[in-house]
């Protein structure tokens, strides 16, 4: 077959199933190689074409989810550092939070069909739209993270008695609390963003996915902190790395079992399967490394990098798995038929 840009939306044709009989009526029809025919429609699909459409999103979106997670986690680390008096963690947490949210925002805008209309996101507040809710969370978080960062800058102003320095000091507690408060939904709402769709694997994963995401966010933020903070101040990061990774891995495991087995399949297959397997290895290794070698600057750095990579792969893997589940009609049709037949049996 010839190809055109739209072919990407059309998976290759399924082989035609063998059928018994053929045209009856005594008209003397022969048996034949059925794979040659205009592909017959199987019970579950129309020429093997997708029923629901995959999201038109590119790598920007999993990147954003990852960056949002790292920003949220970092902001918690920053806050923790501030509260518990660990300046290195406070500083890197705050900078990372702002950097993450800024880059994530850019990725988000970049993925828009009409980036020049990005601000239309703030035209309304819509509770049924996780993206609308998320936009406001992102905005609020971005605001607080920005102020926190300014506060951080303020701390190194030469004249600590100037009105600016004083104002920044006064702003610090609310900014810290605000950014920590919005960090939590920022890292978790993205799971709802994916689940609130007709994409089978995303939707079916809605119970476990937020836990995977927050675990992953914390692990990645901790990983970043491991890289950026001196070993003598990184103990909370090491602990967070282990806890976050543990939650992520545990939640993922639970999620797989909780899901309809067919719909969980894309998480194990294809590119998504590879990414998620790699993510598991990296996350586990990062957590172990952080725990065992985290006191060593180099060991901490390598473990941190592994955690970050693991977290990113989790997001990309889940993202890919969703797209794959939308492209193949069986993931849409089969569970729906089961659900419908179940309902018919027990009205």
């Amino acid at each position: 077959m010839t190809t055109n840009p739209l072919d990407a939306d059309r998976p290759p044709e399924l082989p035609r199933p063998r059928r018994g009989g053929g045209r009856g009526g005594g008209r003397g029809r022969h048996r034949r190689d059925e794979s040659l025919m205009v592909p017959d429609v199987q019970f579950e699909s129309y020429y093997g074409r997708q029923v629901v459409k995959p999201a038109p999103w590119k790598a920007d979106i999993p990147a954003y989810i990852f960056l949002g997670g790292i920003a949220g986690g970092s902001s918690l680390i920053g806050a923790g550092g501030a509260v518990t008096g660990r300046p290195a963690l406070r500083r890197t947490g705050r900078y990372a939070a702002l950097a993450g949210v800024a880059l994530g925002g850019l990725a988000l805008v970049h993925d828009l069909g009409r980036p020049e209309r990005a601000l239309n996101m703030l035209r309304t507040v819509k509770l049924t739209s996780p993206m609308s809710v998320g936009s406001w969370i992102l905005t609020a978080f971005g605001g607080f993270a920005g102020v926190s960062m300014l506060c951080e800058v303020g701390r190194s102003l030469p004249d600590q008695r100037s009105w600016l320095a004083r104002a920044l000091r006064a702003a610090e507690p609310p900014a810290t609390i605000g950014s920590a408060a919005f960090a939590l939904p920022l890292a978790s709402y993205t799971a709802v963003l994916l689940s609130d769709t007709a994409t089978p694997t995303w939707r079916e994963s809605y119970r476990g996915l937020p836990f995977v995401f927050v675990g992953s966010a914390n692990a990645a933020a901790a990983g970043l902190a491991l890289i950026t903070t001196p070993a003598d101040q990184n103990r909370p990061a090491r602990r967070l790395a282990a806890i976050g990774a543990g939650v992520e891995l545990g939640a993922a495991e639970w999620m797989h079992h909780d899901m309809h087995p067919l719909v969980a399949e894309p998480l194990r297959q294809g590119r998504a399967g590879v990414m998620l397997r790699a993510s598991r290895v990296l996350t586990t290794a990062g957590a172990l490394g952080a725990t065992l070698l985290g006191r060593n600057r180099v060991g901490a750095g390598i473990s941190g990098a592994a955690l970050i990579a693991g977290s990113a792969l989790t997001r990309f893997g889940v993202f890919e798995a969703g797209l794959a589940s939308a492209r193949d009609p069986k993931y849409t049709v089969t569970p729906q038929r089961e659900r419908r037949d179940q309902r018919r049996r027990e009205p």
């Binding site: 022969h30 034949r32 190689d33 059925e34 040659l36 025919m37």
Partner: peptide, 9 residues
């Protein structure tokens, strides 16, 4: 389908 089979179409 019969002709297709016969002629490999």
């Amino acid at each position: 389908p019969e002709l297709a089979e016969e002629k490999g179409l």
